[in-house]
Computed example of a mutant assay.
Amino acid sequence: MQLFKLKTTVHEFADFKAFAEAFALGERDLVITNEFLYDPFMKACGLPCHFVMQEHYGQGEPSDEMMNQILSDLKGVSYDRVIAIGGGTVIDISKLFVLDGLSNVLDAFDRKIELKKAKKLVIVPTTCGTGSEVTNISIAEIKSRHTKMGLADDAIVADDAVIIPELLRGLPFRFYAAASIDALIHAVEAYVSPRANAYSLMFSQEAMRIIIGVFRKIAGNPEARHEYASEMLTAANMAGIAFGNVGVGAVHALSYPLGGNYHVPHGEANYQFFTAVFKLYHQKNPTGMIVALEKKLAELLECQSSEVYEALDALLGQLIARKPLREYGMKQDECRGFAQAVIATQQRLLANNYVPFSEDEIAQIYTQLY
């Protein structure tokens, strides 16, 4: 039984210029990024790469429509490497662009084509949340189906992941908070995954230690986050290594209908369900691996094990307010329908639950948070 793998080489550079020189970025490179990153960090380098600005194709989460339009515009462009420099949207898009013979991304998500890697992939994350630079997963909103889908395959794993703390400078605090909370969720969900093992637990524990430690230092002082850019990027990377090996579960599964229907950003959507899911986990099986998790969180939060979820809510609430689901536009009669959609479409994630959830239990969480 496979316990652990890491196919990606991880690097760190102080700034973008040092990275560009070390990787010899040139005319055979396709760089997918954003103008708000290109202008302050890349423009002065005068690189001859082919640049694609993701926001020219739409705002928010990646979608099949967005990806297909970029694919169409790249017809006739020849390149050997895909360089992703951005957040989750840029990274999820870029992963698909290394596949051989791709003309419609739905064919990949539906596995109607052979998934064969044809280009090198280098990922530079500019938020401290996705961990996607070291996973084999790409997530997209499938517009016609009003949900998100995940593609998990080693063909889309990055060859190199690059940490550049400089690139976090311009990230607005709300995005920083939602992304880093998402990284914490990755670590915590991986910790109680049925597939968790000594190797994944090591990465989960260290990611939790760093993230919660930084949160406690910056709560009430958002500008202090810049002092910990390298630490948070590293922690998100570690959390990505953990969940890339053993998976995430119900928190992510329940967030997908909210994101797919109401375009709630991924990290913020996960945040809505975080402690509610773990309280139900504890209620259903308070004697398993969750005991070790709650003990570890209690140490980091300096509280009793019985108080960890309240303490987590209090700490995270100092970073970003958690809103009732109705404030995103969700309707109360959708609670059951969302639960049915999760059961029908998210078994890949639900298989990683600490304990199984029924449709009624999932509907109960939606109703509780509505």
Rank of each mutant, 00 (worst) to 15 (best):
Y271A: 14
Y309V: 04
N261Q: 11
A177C: 13
L171A: 03
D160I: 09
G88R: 02
Y38W: 10
S200V: 01
I163S: 04
L25G: 01
E302Q: 15
A24I: 05
E55D: 07
C49F: 12
A298P: 02
E310I: 04
A177S: 14
G249I: 12
T9K: 13
E361M: 09
F175D: 11
P62Q: 07
L168Y: 06
S306L: 07
V52A: 06
S358D: 11
L121A: 01
M238C: 05
S230K: 15
R225G: 05
G170F: 08
C128V: 10
Y228P: 01
T33Q: 04
L300I: 09
L115Y: 09
A152D: 03
H282E: 12
L30E: 00
G247I: 01
S193M: 04
M53T: 04
E21I: 09
A224R: 15
Q272E: 14
I164T: 09
T130D: 00
G247D: 00
E307V: 08
L96W: 00
L168D: 08
L71K: 12
S193F: 01
L349T: 02
D110F: 10
D153S: 10
F273M: 10
G150I: 02
T8D: 05
S144K: 15
F338D: 06
D159R: 03
Y370T: 06
E334T: 05
E27W: 03
A242N: 06
R195V: 07
V162S: 03
A179N: 07
I241H: 03
I113T: 04
A140F: 04
L6F: 05
Q59F: 14
H11S: 13
A242S: 14
E361P: 08
V52L: 07
Y176G: 03
L312W: 01
E114V: 11
Q304M: 08
Y262R: 11
Y366F: 15
A344Y: 06
L201R: 04
P286W: 13
E327Q: 15
A236V: 05
K143D: 14
L369N: 08
T9D: 10
H56M: 08
G267C: 11
L254M: 15
N34E: 15
C303S: 13
N68A: 08
Q54L: 15
A341G: 12
T275G: 12
E223D: 15
E61L: 07
F4G: 00
A22I: 10
L47N: 03
K17G: 13
E141C: 14
V291G: 03
Y38G: 07
K117Q: 15
F13Q: 04
Y256L: 08
A236D: 10
Q283T: 13
F203S: 01
K279W: 07
L254F: 08
D107Q: 15
L25H: 00
E166P: 06
E231D: 12
